[in-house]
Lab assay of single mutants.
Amino acid sequence: MAAGGDHGSPDSYRSPLASRYASPEMCFVFSDRYKFRTWRQLWLWLAEAEQTLGLPITDEQIQEMKSNLENIDFKMAAEEEKRLRHDVMAHVHTFGHCCPKAAGIIHLGATSCYVGDNTDLIILRNALDLLLPKLARVISRLADFAKERASLPTLGFTHFQPAQLTTVGKRCCLWIQDLCMDLQNLKRVRDDLRFRGVKGTTGTQASFLQLFEGDDHKVEQLDKMVTEKAGFKRAFIITGQTYTRKVDIEVLSVLASLGASVHKICTDIRLLANLKEMEEPFEKQQIGSSAMPYKRNPMRSERCCSLARHLMTLVMDPLQTASVQWFERTLDDSANRRICLAEAFLTADTILNTLQNISEGLVVYPKVIERRIRQELPFMATENIIMAMVKAGGSRQDCHEKIRVLSQQAASVVKQEGGDNDLIERIQVDAYFSPIHSQLDHLLDPSSFTGRASQQVQRFLEEEVYPLLKPYESVMKVKAELCL
């Protein structure tokens, strides 16, 4: 049975990233139509530049190519590739079939990587351009969430054990800070992308030097003109047959890092959902379990974690691919890159769409948070109580021993009897502590235990987050809708 299948058929496997999760716009960027249309555009740009620099290419040939950029006979191309065992030459023939007058000058002087690699770089750039505003929107939604809850005390956790208090907004800023680093890295790697350009079979530009009869300047002009037509500021000066596969490492490393950030955020949300302090959106008709109707599973956060793990592992592909590119190139890269580049971007696209949807509907339960604080705060307040007693004339050592005994009794009630923490009640009825009984409410005010959390939130948002989001103001209103 021949390899390949009808990918629109229910009898043929289709990647869930495309069929179930990723956005239509990201799927289109990695589609065959987008790819092969870009090949034709690159052939047109090459012909236009070659004509401008004096090669015998007519206006009629150029116009014929322009008129057929979208006229792609995919069936013919597939048949040609089956016959020739070469995808680029299959599309040269297919393009030439609908451009008979231009057929002889299509791909003039070029090698397969002229269309293959340059198209990949265009796709990487455009895919990054799709991700950047999506990530900015996630940051914006979380920034709104953090600002609104900047002063809401909550129990902090280290080692997932109760620690000092923080605020809900401050905790959210930990998430935002990681995503801001990801946004900066995505922008950097996007701006650092260079075009492969017009380089020939081993990167020496020998074929173009021959076409222009040894004119170095025209060869350099050709490279520059096509690079500018493709919208790049610069091209690699040095290439082998391909652009260095280190570029793929750079791009997928940034995406993998984004995956790590999203995994951490969504894990926190899942843990908070278990504590009943916070939940992701839950639709009115949504079913959490087929057997347990009360369940409210954090399905979206779980999906993000599941896909983020996949995204983090994909960076190993370009690392290994770059390491086995012998001399000017081997074909070890080809099949692998067809999979890992598309999957990385479709996965990143999915987790950003999902995280935006989550961040637009996060639900906080202040009463649950308050109750958990009441359970733990008495123990945390013991040092403040000791200091207040010393100020009232008591002995630190005597007070410490009193607190120690009462704390152990209260802990026994919590752990052995399943009761509430009654340390404060014990202190309130103990005559030894009568000098500070009137101060206990103040000493137990949760806001006095959150330090500068709310001020940190305000400063972080104003100095770091809002300036970073400013270039994306025009796209901030787009909502994230999930079908599944």
Rank of each mutant, 00 (worst) to 15 (best):
A2S: 15
A3E: 10
G5I: 14
S15K: 05
P16E: 06
R20S: 03
A22L: 09
V29G: 05
R33I: 10
Y34K: 08
F36S: 13
Q41D: 09
W43M: 06
L44A: 12
A47L: 04
A47G: 10
Q51S: 10
P56F: 07
I57G: 04
E60A: 09
Q63E: 09
E64T: 12
M65R: 04
M65T: 08
N68D: 11
E70T: 14
K75R: 09
A78G: 10
A78R: 11
E81W: 00
R85Y: 10
H86Q: 08
A90K: 02
A90W: 02
A90N: 06
V92T: 12
T94V: 15
F95M: 09
G96Q: 03
C99Y: 04
G104T: 15
H107R: 00
L108C: 15
D117Q: 00
N118W: 01
N118C: 13
I123F: 04
A127G: 10
P133V: 14
A136F: 13
R137P: 14
R137M: 14
V138N: 09
R141L: 12
F145L: 05
A150D: 07
H159F: 02
P162Q: 12
R171A: 01
R171D: 00
C173R: 02
C173Q: 04
L174E: 09
I176Y: 03
D178V: 05
D182Q: 02
R188I: 07
V189R: 11
R190W: 08
D191P: 01
D191M: 09
F195S: 06
R196K: 10
R196E: 10
R196L: 13
K199S: 11
G203R: 00
G203V: 01
G203H: 01
G203P: 02
A206K: 04
L209M: 07
L209C: 07
Q210K: 15
Q210D: 15
Q210P: 09
F212V: 11
E213P: 15
K218F: 08
E220D: 13
D223L: 04
D223A: 06
T227Y: 11
T227L: 05
K229H: 07
G231F: 06
K233N: 14
A235E: 12
T239W: 03
T242W: 05
R245N: 03
V247P: 02
V247D: 07
I249G: 06
I249C: 06
E250T: 11
E250S: 10
V251I: 08
S253D: 05
L255V: 10
L258C: 10
A260D: 02
A260V: 04
S261W: 02
V262Y: 02
I265N: 05
C266W: 03
C266Q: 10
C266F: 10
I269G: 03
I269W: 14
R270Q: 05
R270G: 02
L272R: 01
L272M: 09
A273E: 10
A273C: 13
L275N: 08
K276L: 07
E277D: 04
E279D: 03
E279K: 03
E280P: 04
Q285S: 12
Q286M: 01
I287R: 02
I287M: 08
S290W: 01
S290Q: 00
A291N: 03
M292A: 01
M292C: 02
M292H: 02
K295M: 02
K295W: 03
P298Q: 05
M299R: 01
E302P: 02
L307S: 09
A308C: 14
T313M: 11
L314A: 10
V315E: 04
L319N: 00
A322T: 14
A322C: 13
V324D: 08
V324P: 00
F327K: 03
R329F: 05
R329I: 00
D333N: 01
N336P: 01
N336Q: 10
I339R: 03
I339L: 11
F345T: 11
L346S: 09
L346Q: 11
T347K: 04
T350W: 04
I351Y: 00
Q356V: 06
N357K: 05
S359T: 09
E360C: 08
V363M: 11
V368A: 05
I369S: 12
R372Q: 05
R372E: 04
L377E: 01
A381L: 10
E383R: 01
N384T: 10
G394D: 06
S395E: 07
S395Y: 06
R396N: 00
H400W: 00
E401T: 10
E401F: 10
L406W: 06
S407K: 00
A410C: 06
A411D: 03
G419A: 09
D420N: 06
D422V: 11
D422I: 09
L423M: 13
I424Y: 15
I424C: 14
F433Y: 08
S434A: 11
Q439N: 15
Q439E: 14
L440M: 08
L444A: 02
L444H: 05
S448K: 14
G451H: 01
S454Y: 12
S454H: 08
Q458W: 14
F460M: 09
E462C: 14
E463S: 09
V465P: 00
V465Y: 03
P467E: 09
P471C: 15
Y472D: 09
S474W: 15
S474E: 15
V475R: 15
K477V: 15
K477F: 14
A480S: 15
L482R: 07
L482G: 07
